[in-house]
């Protein structure tokens, strides 16, 4: 299978998934108590207002017609209006999504840069005391609720030892995010911590599996040293399954962003979502769910493409 055929197939799968997501979101919208009218007009709407809204918006039409109308709106980039902010939701998201992306991408990059070498090193030093310590720390970081972790970091590094501010930069534009880099440290560290824990474990077990593979024995028989074999052969082979897991970790990253942005008051999509939940602003809530899901699907696609770059067997359909 050539590259383009493989990409096409993955793209089609991604589109199918996005379709299903729109159905889910649509379903949620219509399963709200009081229907979407209440969702959009708010809890205070009177029965009359709801009736008027329903007939205006065509909510009396059959469900599948409404679904296609909904899809039509989506394709035009219309996610509706937020009644708390009184702005187009699309506009709100366009403002805030990039900031969330900056946060999550930075978290992911830093986490991977630390986790991958750490995992490999742990595998090489298996059952050494240091391996146990690193494993234990990983377990703890992985088992702690993100907000608890963030809180502990704030207490230690912001209050007890005032090193970093506990509030993230709050400007409106994307550039303002970088105005005070120190303010980004704690949010990123909180998000990266559990990702480092998870991916170092993956890398460790993947490396361990690869160390007992035949090709390692062949390389040793050719006179290669342990370090050389690790770097040149084991590393890339161990990386493949880990990259595959990246795709599935993207929603976890976004979920974490929700909590982190709330904790550190970072003006991204997570905070938007949080505030909308507090005020039951359903259009915003569902619009965000849709966008985040699409972002996740795109992220998974990117991870898959990355995998096919590292591993040429993926395109040929044999792994």
């Amino acid at each position: 299978m050539t590259t383009s055929l493989y990409l096409l197939r993955r793209l089609l799968q991604a589109v199918a998934v996005i379709f299903i997501v729109t159905v889910v979101v649509f379903g949620l919208l219509h399963s709200l108590p009081g229907g979407p009218a209440r969702g959009i007009l708010g809890a205070q709407a009177t029965a009359q207002q709801i009736e008027q809204f329903n007939s205006e918006q065509g909510l009396t039409k059959p469900l599948y017609v409404q679904y296609f109308l909904y899809l039509g709106h989506l394709l035009h980039g219309d996610l509706g209006i937020s009644y708390t902010y009184n702005e187009s939701i699309t506009q709100l998201i366009v403002e805030r999504l990039p900031k969330t992306l900056v946060l999550t991408i930075l978290q992911a990059v830093i986490a991977l840069v630390i986790a991958i070498p750490l995992g490999m090193w742990q595998a090489a030093k298996r059952n050494h005391p240091v391996d146990y310590i690193a494993t234990t720390v990983s377990f703890v970081a992985y088992s702690a609720p993100v907000f608890f972790l963030g809180l502990v970091l704030i207490i230690v590094f912001s209050q007890t030892i005032p090193l970093f501010p506990s509030q993230a930069p709050n400007g409106a534009t994307l550039a303002s995010v970088f105005a005070n880099p120190a303010a980004l440290v704690l949010p990123i560290a909180t998000g990266a911590a559990s990702m480092i824990a998870v991916f170092s474990r993956y890398m460790r077990s993947s490396t361990l599996e690869n160390l007992s593979e035949d090709y390692v024995r062949t390389a040793r028989a050719g006179g290669g040293s342990g370090g050389q074999i690790l770097r040149r052969h084991v590393f890339r082979n161990s990386l493949t399954p880990v990259v595959a897991m990246l795709g599935y970790y993207v929603p976890v990253l976004f979920g974490g962003a929700l909590v982190i942005e709330q904790l550190f008051n970072y003006p991204g999509m997570g905070l938007l979502f949080w505030n909308a939940a507090q005020s039951s602003d359903f259009p915003v809530l569902l619009g965000c769910v849709l966008v985040i899901s699409v972002a996740t699907v795109v992220g998974t696609l990117i991870a898959d493409i990355l995998q096919s770059v590292i591993d040429p067997r993926v395109k040929a359909g044999r792994t």
Partner: peptide
């Protein structure tokens, strides 16, 4: 895949 794409915390919220 679609279910995984929607972060659990978002649904819960």
């Amino acid at each position: 895949d679609a279910g995984i794409a929607i972060p659990a915390l978002f649904i819960l919220l």
